[in-house]
Nucleic acid binder design. Sequence first.
DNA 1: TGCCAGGCCGGGT
DNA 2: ACCCGGCATGGC
Length: 224
Amino acid sequence: MKKSSTHKKHKKIIARDLSKLYHFLLKNLGAQNWWPGNSAFEIMVGAILTQNTNWANVTSSIANLKKAGMLNPGQMYAKRRSLPKMIRSSGYFRIKSQRLISFVKYYLDKYQGSVMKILKVSAEKLRIELLQVYGVGDETADSILLYALNRPVFVIDAYTRRIFSRHRLINYSDEYRKIQRIFHDNLPTVVDQYNEYHALLVYLGKNYCHKHDPDCSLCPINSF
DNA sequence: TGCCAGGCCGGGT
DNA sequence: ACCCGGCATGGC
């Protein structure tokens, strides 16, 4: 059996139950306490480095940057030529170096690399700006908004698509903003809940909702 | 060994 | 509006 997305063993989830599902997952899986990172800038960098990449591969890159004193906008830009070497373990290291440079340049030019200054701009306006930056798409922009800048923006990723398409809330290939709207419309606008919910979905995706031949009998959602 | 990982971009139809 | 190839390392 290859496809599971429409198999009956996946319990159907409806939009109105998203809030209850959150509390269920939090109770059964425990708080994930994201984002694993200390400063806002470290989280921004991590959001780019983890694109289509295992987080474990990113941690050593972050450690390299920290050791080199490059985990701040000014030094990262000044030492930008050493980025490929520093972030090699994250994969796509050449293109991700370009993405980090374009992001840091934007952050320095527009906000002098200051969290205080970027926090003065509304989430809606910031999202549009971030999407103009080379290498920042919907998920990366929203990860920065939610996890680095504490804005109530729900992050949609491949795990979210996989989990909820199997449970027939969405189609896997639905537009990003369409999926996001379902969460925004059916959850209280609470940053901490958006934060924890996405982290729980990643945990669920990693451990129970595998791409091929998923072992659905172990998925906690079955007993929701 | 091959598949997968917390995407995004550019070109083609 | 889709669809696709390219980008790349490290763990199981």
